[in-house]
Design a protein around this nucleic acid. Structure first.
Lengths: 349, 349
DNA sequence: TTGACGATTTGGAACGTTCTAATTAATCCA
DNA sequence: TGGATTAATTAGAACGTTCCAAATCGTCAA
């Protein structure tokens, strides 16, 4: 199976021109005569020529490799799958191809794949950093002039562009909605306290409570894995406090689904006996039962914006950090009841 | 931002050795003295050296690029996201990095990304082909000696390795289960008739019906997009036939969820008034309401197997096609009722 | 007839590695 | 002492492109 690779010189000799001319044809130069161009193209097709970008990149010292990397922490979470699709979408249209790696929240794996991608000559990187990633991890990247865009999760202190959703505002809106429905005991469930996303959403939650005249109770803030399983665990712990909550803002939709599971296990029906709000608006949120009230963040759009920002930086050759915030929107569905405030007040008393 | 790239000669002169020696250190050759090795490594770290795989690949045979490609038709479908994670898993562990591209069922996009990946020197390709892909599309790939593994969807006539699930057996088991519950009017919903997956599952379905003494009725086979929306559409059409079905085998879980939506829209409760069986066992199947009875196919495992097969072919340098079938298993949950046959017979009469 | 000009084409030196064959240094044995 | 053996290092030619400077070839004005 050891096929001879057909190169530009093979084409050249078969077409009776020099390799320089073939190279010009390859890059669509206007310098070459139409007849020659046609001839060369014909020969290329005939011999099944495949352009060798590696060789080309070697010569053009600039990072014009037409490869970008994208690393996500959990591709099985449809939020990140959508993010990747968004990136892929704009990147493909721009003639780039993407390395996609999944870290599964492993910081070691993240380091490995980034190193590997650099060796392969990526001209830019979009990353949703694994938990525990530090600003220092980006130092070598930016130092080498590699454009980097951080998406979804913030890494405080990193001097790179970011694409973040309005976490604070989203959490504020969601919490205000719950308070408006009459809830006084509102929990904040899921997520790890050492992440920026957690902090931001928590801040929005507290702000909305205070503004609604409710003093935040830290016993109602329970941290857990930002996953379905984490949601089950979180609601379990939350229901143990002296005055249990009647509603919860969840770190994300996965947690929210887990919370619903946990409520049912306690014979409480989400949406009727307890109000649940998620965050992300993943694809299943709309069709779950009950349909989840959540903060819509359009992951695919975020992916697209991140990719656009990255391409912009690649083309400009600049690494001037820019912070893009992606708008969010509260989508009210069925998981926090339609009975209005009175229903809740009755239950609460 | 135009950083000078530090190369092997820079390291060489800084460490007071020749570039050949540095090259030997890079590849962990036992020929080099421990002290020199240490010195060289130190200098590399100090200068922030990044190995240039592109340059290396230029010199080596093309199967050493340490890049594989994976192209899927719909990454937003968690089945394929999981497949990609499976591939990523083994591929990363083997020190490879993967190009991941999403075709969104576009055959043009598929052609483009494959071409792009080849230009970048992939040493192998795992593909879940877009609808309409033909055996001829793989000719140029195999002709150039590129190892290819087709996953999930078969392309009849293609002389490449495949990793497929036991479609026929799975559909047989699922249908037999429905017939065993007493159903006589069992529909087959979703999917496009021109795909091999559809054919195989349909064959298993028919076989089980006949064996259960039920003559297949083609009016109950309704083709539609293999998506949630397609499911809604399919059940709508199926309920219009003279003697409507009381149960359905769906092409995949996405269709099954759509069928549930469609049933509810008709005031029928899936699992109580109508039996629904899916195929794939995506992550949501277990936690949906009602929990979906489905045929479990372990997409991540398929991804892993596909990647292993690909790596095997890359290392062996052979393109001997091999067909791997991935076992499936019927998982009985709540969406086809627990009332036993009598419940259905009563409803049917 | 000359030479200047535009339109094409081309030779050959990069680019950062690997690899072969050859060189040098060190050690050993008789 | 010297030749053989082993260990460690190295020069330089690839690899398949790009790109610069230079070459070729008509053509056309003077």
């Amino acid at each position: 199976m050891a096929r001879e690779r057909v190169t530009v010189v093979d084409i050249a000799s078969a077409a009776g021109v020099s390799k320089s001319t073939v190279s010009l044809v390859l890059r669509g130069s206007p310098l070459v005569n139409e007849k020659t161009r046609a001839k060369v193209n014909a020969v290329m097709r005939e011999l099944g020529y495949v352009y060798n970008r590696g060789a080309a990149n070697l010569r053009q010292s600039r990072s014009k490799s037409k490869i970008v990397g994208i690393v996500v922490n959990d591709l099985t979470n449809s939020f990140f799958a959508e993010l990747a699709v968004g990136v892929d979408d704009v990147v493909q249209s721009a003639g780039y191809v993407q390395f996609l790696a999944n870290t599964g929240e492993s910081i070691d794996r993240q380091r490995e794949v980034i190193a590997s991608m650099r060796e392969h000559g990526i001209s830019g990187l979009v990353i949703s950093p694994a938990r525990g990633t530090e600003a220092a991890d980006f130092k070598p990247l930016t130092a080498s002039g590699l454009p980097v865009v951080i998406a979804v999760r913030n890494v405080p202190g990193a001097k790179v562009s970011t694409v973040m959703s309005e976490n604070r505002a989203g959490a504020y809106a969601a919490t205000a909605h719950l308070v408006g429905l009459g809830h006084r005991r509102v929990a904040f469930l899921g997520g790890f306290a050492d992440t920026a996303v957690f902090e931001d959403r928590l801040a929005g939650y507290r702000h909305a409570l205070r503004e609604g005249g409710v003093e935040p109770d830290d016993r109602l803030v329970v941290s857990a894995a930002p996953s379905r399983a984490g949601g089950v665990e979180a609601i379990g712990r939350a229901m143990l406090v002296a005055e249990p909550p009647t509603a919860a803002l969840c770190l994300n939709d996965a947690v929210a689904f887990g919370v619903c599971d946990g409520l049912r296990a306690r014979r409480l029906e989400p949406g009727a006996d307890f109000a649940v709000v998620g965050f992300d608006d993943v694809i299943e949120a709309k069709t779950a039962v009950p349909a989840l009230t959540t903060v819509s963040v359009d992951p695919q759009g975020m992916g697209r914006r991140a990719a656009q920002q990255l391409l912009k930086q690649i083309n400009a050759g600049t690494t001037e950090p820019e912070a893009i915030v992606s708008a969010v929107r509260l989508v009210v569905r069925d998981s926090c009841g339609s009975g209005g405030p009175r229903l809740w007040e009755r239950k609460a008393s």
